[in-house]
Write a protein that binds this DNA or RNA. Structure first.
Lengths: 341, 341
DNA sequence: AACGTTACCGGAAACGTTTTCAAAATTTAT
DNA sequence: ATAAATTTTGAAAACGTTTCCGGTAACGTT
């Protein structure tokens, strides 16, 4: 029992192929009565239009790409999930691609678009700062950059959309909280460091700014660099502790890493927050269920995902123009930070 | 500068369309010299074949579906990632679909296959026990079921492949360890409970069997049911604790849940493992970095992913038949369990 | 009654490939 | 050298849709 095609349906129903086509695309030019009839037959014979043929004909696919940077960060998993939902709802299909830590993101994006004939692309994370916008110039495929280090270039014609948080500002908020409200003076930092304008470095800037504002000298001994993994942060924290600097707090620029760092602290028999306060970043669920639960700066994940896909569809349907959206973060006070005595 | 098609390349190169087609599909029937020439031109003009057209013509796509059950379990994220890699390597594209907790998995699978014209499908998790194999009967699309509750039906013609662990046995191992090696007698259990033959229930059986083997009576007060989330396990553990049964250990049938449960214990000021030992299941990375790190039964995630995709490609290329593979689990001793005094 | 509109429908030409079949070119055998 | 076998190529027919371009039928208007 091979799959039926539109011709079969046409034959069975007694109408022409074009009419059947019109009903599946619910084109207005068809009488209600015949629409009914044809739909009934389609239903009965369980006919599913061949997508390749459609796409070929329309020379466009119903594929939306999601390019996610970095391995295994639950921060993204959640977003991917809700994005997939929305994509499916709209009748599109999601093609997901992971991009490893050290590959050129913009290149991967362009490649993906061309190869998979994408209708749109959302990039989750990654380094998109100093890329050459001219690479995007031929593409009519809309791109939205989410949770990246992009910064709005004032006058340039927008070739993409973005939805981001202000990393520097958010980091400032976190560290300022540590200094000003909780009275810490010796604050370590564990961040990530690929590129001068990477997210990790942006957050690092916020850290320094907060120190300065609170009249604390920055000491580069307090800085350790890691990657977005438990393990690397665990090691980084151990290095920091080994230096015996007497830090009373540490700002870790991702929750995953904050957990790794906390584990290192706890494993040495130190107490959180009694001996050291730990401040995370991201707002993943894990952080809440660590013990002690981790104080963090929450990025509005759901909103970021929703907004991104909303913008993307606006673009695809040509109802809207490119936009740059900045979302607010929220400091969530939990158990891992406390006032210094 | 619109995209070139095969005709353009043919024209430019001076060969016929069919010859160009042969070189892109590296068909043997073409002289090395002309292959070279044509490849050079393809390269130069950056020609990418139109997938829709190919698929249409070959009446098959290069899409491989991955249907993952349940929301947000890092246990799966990792597998998805490595699966995606392998799929991409083979020149296929992954279409990922999440299936929520309470939908019919087999139905979703069949739907997905038809709609997206999949070349193969791997299902991660889900309930596939008592499904009607006849639903698969028309499909030539190979399916491999991974990490599901499927059990090999002896004589039935295989309509699918599977790669699983023996849940009951693995759970037995965990609980037996608690009883026999560590001397616990009052052991709570938190598991999941959709359906009588769900994974959670299989593990529950292993729990009961271990108790029996160690001459411990099963008391149904010791059982709490939850879902695969931190939150639900957190609550379940609190319910269990509220009953004041004097449990000295608890077996939680997923690491995510074990963490939620641990958090509940710790939040009450109880110590792990001094007051209560916690045994997890799955072997996700987070369990290692929780404090105390959680003793668990590790499923070989990477191997499961690799094996699944290997089988799938064997099937797609018709080099192999359906297989049912059972992988071994490993009990990883960490800090959360200790001998009873 | 004749006309112009409008609503609905059908025919057929694309879309960009792969593949079959046969022809042309080349090699090998005689 | 010629024939036979082999390798390499080209022409053209699909694959299953969408859509343009007309055509018919039904309707209202004068």
């Amino acid at each position: 029992m091979k799959n039926l095609n539109i011709k079969d349906i046409a034959k069975i129903s007694g109408y022409a192929v074009s009419t059947v086509s019109r009903v599946i695309n619910n084109h207005p030019d068809v009488k209600d009565e015949t629409r009914e009839k044809i739909l009934k037959i389609i239903e009965k014979y369980n006919y599913i239009p061949n997508n390749s043929a459609r796409n070929l004909k329309r020379s466009e696919s119903k594929n939306i790409g999601v390019l996610v940077k970095g391995i295994f960060n639950p921060f993204f998993s959640k977003m991917v999930q809700s994005i997939e939902e929305r994509i499916a709802e709209e009748g599109y299909t999601m093609v997901l691609h992971y991009n490893d830590e050290n590959s050129d993101d913009i290149e991967a994006a362009v490649e993906l678009i061309k190869e998979k004939k994408l209708r749109g692309l959302v990039c989750l994370g990654g380094n998109f700062d100093e890329f050459d916008e001219s690479q995007l110039i031929g593409l009519k495929t809309p791109i939205v950059l989410t949770s990246t280090n992009i910064v709005e270039k004032s006058k340039s014609k927008k070739k993409f959309s973005s939805v981001i948080i202000e990393n520097e500002k958010a980091a400032f908020k976190a560290v300022d909280y540590l200094c000003r409200l909780l009275g810490h003076k010796k604050i370590g930092i564990i961040t990530t460091g690929a590129g001068d304008r990477s997210i990790g470095q942006l957050r690092f800037k916020g850290y320094k700014k907060a120190l300065k504002q609170n009249n604390i000298d920055y000491n580069e001994e307090f800085l350790e660099i890691g990657e977005y993994t438990f393990e690397s942060a665990y090691k980084a924290m151990n290095r920091l502790l080994d230096k015996d600097l007497g830090v009373t707090a540490v700002f870790v620029t991702s929750d995953i890493m904050a957990i790794g760092a906390s584990k290192a602290i706890l494993s040495r028999g130190l107490k959180i927050p009694d001996n050291i306060s730990v401040m995370g970043f991201d707002g993943i669920e894990y952080a809440k269920y660590f013990h002690p639960s981790i104080t963090t700066v929450k990025q509005p994940q759901e909103e970021m995902g929703n907004k991104s896909i909303e913008i993307l569809f606006g673009l695809i349907k040509r109802e809207k123009k490119h936009q740059h959206i900045i979302l607010e973060t929220e400091l969530i006070e939990r158990e891992s930070c406390k006032k210094i005595l």
